[in-house]
Design a binder for these strands. Structure first.
Lengths: 220, 220
DNA sequence: CGTTTAATTGAAAGCAGTCAAACTATGTGG
DNA sequence: CCACATAGTTTGACTGCTTTCAATTAAACG
């Protein structure tokens, strides 16, 4: 076990951790709660480009690039560790396994981005939403946050829509559709995937891209 | 200058370098020509998730992850260097600047993926196409392959469409639209951006996400 | 020069968006 | 603990961007 010099910060839902264009002096690791990265178009449309669970490093970018190319916001109230910019680089330079772990994390991050791009570009709205529900189910379980297919969706329909490039209205219709088809059950934001395999089929979901095995092989 | 054990391979247009699901024994660096990464949906729709110019490392993934989460194909006839799986890891372990360069390249890769995701999810078709034309213009110039805004598009309309999540038919209509509006000139696949600023405005293009400066700071 | 591959054009259909209003939760202060 | 305010969700009617299907033209290639 190795120690990183850091401070802990508690942030409220929707507060910004980093704004696009800034160059913060530290990188962040999620300790509890959920955090997401977003980008805006000039016209003001928002896209959530990734969601981060406890244990994940949200912004290596800030330690190794000069400009933040996206904003980071809290999806729920969250605790994050702030690691000084130089600290991560120093530790990585001294411990090659750390450097390797950072690279692996970043490659997995890229893999998920590719799947999200495929999703947004080439799957219809219901497959897209189903895909996200499946991904959240697997990642939450992998993070030790509940059993597979039974969880509280950590975001509003508007935020779901912004993960998917859809509108909130359409997400609402899709969710009630899934419910009517008996694919899911809902109580507020608590969701239960009633029939996993049919939902996986609808979603065209194959968890390979999550590289869950690779992630375990090199814990940070 | 440091040397990597490698072999050189020449590949024809459209041949596969890596197929999704494989676990090749080497990573690839583009020496000449263009190469792209693609993913397919279960229904067979294709999305090109990135395009790679000479000098770029296409698949660190294969050295550091256990399964290829996407396919790699030649966009044009190309020369690629094959670096054995262990070689990159060894060199990175011995030279921390190499490890850092690999990480920076991967972070930039992720930044471009985020922009493509924003593009596919939140911009309309004309902004999307214009955005790609601007990106190619800047990256080609940065790679020393011609002056800004005057180049040969290295792909067919179908491939353009697959970069954008559109159909070939629609890309055709959009391109002639741009031409009619005097934004671009065309002669076959040779393109000239006649009015850079209006195209940039239409595209909502801001090159920050390419991190061209960061890339220069750490040449591989 | 013939054959294959790529690009253009037109007409029609459909998925998801937009606008608007009603309804339901959630939360806060009196 | 209720009343009110705010935030989030549902539902309906209508619009429109992009796709689909199909046929033609142009370019590239051997």
């Amino acid at each position: 076990m190795l120690s990183l010099r850091h401070t802990v910060q508690t942030v409220e839902r929707r507060s910004y951790l980093v704004r696009e264009g800034e160059h913060p002096a530290e990188s962040r690791i999620v300790l509890s709660g959920f955090v997401f990265r977003q980008k805006l178009t000039g016209a003001g449309a928002r896209e959530i480009v990734s969601v981060h669970l406890p244990g994940e490093i949200v912004d290596l970018h800030n330690s190794f690039l000069t400009v933040a190319d996206h904003s980071i916001q809290a999806l729920t109230r969250a605790e994050v560790a702030l690691v000084p910019r130089a600290e991560l680089a120093d530790v990585a330079a001294r411990h090659i396994q750390v450097a390797r772990a950072l690279l692996v994390e970043t490659l997995i991050d890229g893999s998920i981005l590719k799947e999200w791009l495929l999703n947004a570009a080439r799957r219809n709205s219901s497959a897209r939403l189903a895909h996200l529900l499946c991904e959240l189910a697997m990642r939450l379980r992998a993070a030790g946050l509940g059993e597979l297919g039974r969880y509280r969706i950590p975001m509003t329909q508007e935020e779901l829509a912004d993960c998917l490039g859809l509108t909130q209205v359409h997400v609402s219709r899709l969710l009630s559709g899934f419910e009517k088809q008996g694919l899911i059950e809902r109580a507020g934001r608590d969701i239960g995937i009633s029939r996993w395999q049919p939902l996986v089929n609808l979603a065209d979901f194959d968890p390979t891209y999550l590289h869950l095995f690779d992630a375990e092989a090199y814990p940070a």
